[in-house]
Simulated assay, not measured.
Amino acid sequence: MKKPITMRYLVLSLTVAFSAFTFSAVKAQQAPPAADQVVKEACTQAAKANKKVFVIFHASWCGWCHKMDTAMNDASVKKAFDNNYEIRHITVMENGANKGLENPGGADLLAKYHGDQEGIPFWLVLNTNSDLLADSRMKSPTGKLQNVGCPAQKEELDYFVGILEKTSKMKPAELEAVRTRFGKIAATSGH
């Protein structure tokens, strides 16, 4: 004889199923690593490979961040970046439901490098000891530091390529490829 399903049994079954589902969802969406851990891991990998660390502060909503990633991952320059830098992203400035995408401590790290008032993307070049070698702030004609973010204009490209030249082993042809690829951004964005 079959036992009737009681309300208590049904509630208990649903509670167990919901708990298992919630646990799976939480486990699948683990919090991003802390920003200092991202930098530490990148420095460790960079030391093993004789590279520098390139950290990009970004957010899911940031169009210029996506343009920078697209340019850096373009086949014409990707190998040059990958051969010279351990590239890491730190998510900051998210809103609403995407707030959980942020790397804990990312905003503090951005502030430490004076990027919290600059907008994003904001990037850093670090050595393997996490010492700052350069950042995305160039001096304006008035002497004020301003974030070039995703470089697109000639002055921004000159600054960016100069930083790459000083902090990498990119050959002149690779640097020119970077200048050319990033220069396309201005043409396509009316900037």
Rank of each mutant, 00 (worst) to 15 (best):
S76G: 10
S76N: 14
V77I: 14
V77K: 13
V77R: 12
K78D: 09
K78L: 11
K78M: 10
A80F: 04
A80C: 08
A80K: 04
F81W: 10
D82W: 07
D82K: 06
D82A: 14
N83L: 06
N84L: 02
Y85M: 01
Y85V: 01
E86C: 11
E86Q: 14
E86I: 15
R88H: 13
R88E: 15
H89Y: 11
H89Q: 11
H89N: 10
H89P: 08
H89S: 13
I90H: 10
I90Q: 07
V92T: 00
V92H: 01
V92P: 00
M93P: 03
N95F: 08
N95Q: 11
N95W: 06
G96K: 02
G96Y: 08
A97D: 13
A97W: 06
A97V: 15
N98H: 07
K99I: 14
K99C: 08
K99Y: 11
K99A: 14
K99S: 13
K99W: 05
G100N: 15
G100Y: 08
E102A: 14
E102T: 09
E102W: 05
E102V: 11
E102K: 06
E102M: 14
N103M: 07
N103V: 05
P104F: 10
P104H: 13
G105Q: 00
G105N: 01
G106Q: 07
A107T: 09
D108G: 00
D108R: 02
D108L: 00
L109W: 03
L110C: 12
K112M: 11
K112C: 13
K112I: 12
Y113I: 14
Y113G: 12
H114S: 12
H114W: 06
H114P: 01
H114R: 10
G115N: 03
G115D: 12
D116S: 11
D116F: 07
D116T: 12
Q117D: 15
E118T: 15
G119H: 03
G119W: 08
G119I: 09
I120C: 04
I120N: 06
P121N: 04
F122S: 13
F122N: 09
W123T: 00
W123R: 00
L124T: 08
L124R: 02
L124D: 01
L126E: 09
L126Q: 07
N127D: 15
N127A: 12
T128Q: 14
T128H: 10
T128I: 11
T128K: 09
S130I: 03
S130G: 04
S130A: 15
D131T: 15
L132T: 08
L133F: 04
A134G: 02
A134E: 03
S136T: 02
S136C: 01
S136I: 01
R137E: 10
R137Q: 14
R137F: 01
R137C: 09
R137L: 12
M138H: 02
M138A: 05
M138G: 01
M138P: 02
M138C: 02
S140F: 04
P141L: 01
